[in-house]
Design a protein around this nucleic acid. Structure first.
Lengths: 165, 165
DNA sequence: ATTTATGCAAATCCTTTGCAAATCT
DNA sequence: AGATTTGCAAAGGATTTGCATAAAT
């Protein structure tokens, strides 16, 4: 389903429909690979990077393969379309759902690499306030609080290092 | 007078001294190039990247040249030593003074690329509060508020309607 | 005399591009 | 048909690494 219901305005469209709308408005075409990608991307709600997508799609034995350049090209479009949000973590781009998903920020565990989402209206107010003091017109922000998650700060000894995001 | 306080930064040391201390504690050596770099880096208080350093040093006609790999290696050490803070902006690493410089965050103008520093204790409190709610142990954070700076939002810009939702 | 650091060149990693062939509308 | 897209191979930019030589202790 369509659990894209969070008080936002146009929540009736599926990501696919929204993307099609976007593409048409740009005179772009609705191709097989764009379908495959958006389909795959919105199946789960996890953070991922381009490599994840390429790997996962190359594993499906149902002819769902999409080339690396196309994956990158489409990711950019999905960001432009407002469907995905992009952030940089450790040198590469990481993506997450944006469309129909409430604004939030992240706690990033430096040990296990987990990303924990949180929401804070207070922060948004603060953001406005600070910007206002500098005559700055805000369009967005990037906030990642880093440290150790509950599990990892419990552990006494160092665990084997996980692959860095 | 009182360099007898726990938890407070000893601001009596110059960056160079602090770095030497760090290097010794690691069994590393105080080389010419490390001297040149830290010297150059702490001359000004601007944000810079590795390329800036390399360029600037190659321009000095006083035999101050340092190779690219060494610049990168040393930048990492300076970050480890707590002298520089590193952040990622547009795919590359940007550095700024950390040692002896008050904690702050940034407003980033998407148009002129300016970085405006600001300080907010409220935000730090909020950070603790949020982290606490998740049993998270904070070690740091990265916050960049993006948008248009005062100057840039004044300018009347007639852009072709390209990236509208 | 050791041992660490440097510089060079080449390698990596992530991402983008040129272009001919394939695919949409 | 006519335009946009794709996939391939190769290019790119930022950063890192292997290794022989130079420098520091």
């Amino acid at each position: 389903m369509s659990n894209y219901s969070l008080g936002t305005v146009e929540v009736s469209l599926t990501p696919m429909q929204r993307f099609e709308e976007f593409l048409q408005s740009k005179g772009k075409r609705i191709t097989q690979q764009r379908r495959i990608l958006i389909d795959h991307v919105f199946k789960r709600h996890e953070h991922f990077d381009a490599e994840d997508l390429i790997d996962e799609l190359s594993r499906t034995n149902s002819g769902q393969r999409v080339s690396r350049p196309t994956v990158y090209r489409t990711l950019r479009e999905l960001v432009d379309a407002g469907l995905l949000k992009q952030m940089e973590l450790g040198g590469r781009s990481v993506y997450e759902h944006d469309y129909g998903y409430p604004q939030h920020d992240h706690l990033h565990c430096q040990k296990c690499n987990k990303l924990i989402e949180f929401r804070s209206d207070e922060f948004l107010e603060l953001r406005q306030k600070v910007a206002g003091e500098h005559g700055f017109r805000v369009t967005g922000h990037r906030l990642i609080i880093s440290g150790l998650c509950q599990d990892c700060s419990k552990v006494r000894r160092r665990k084997r290092p996980q692959d860095l995001i």
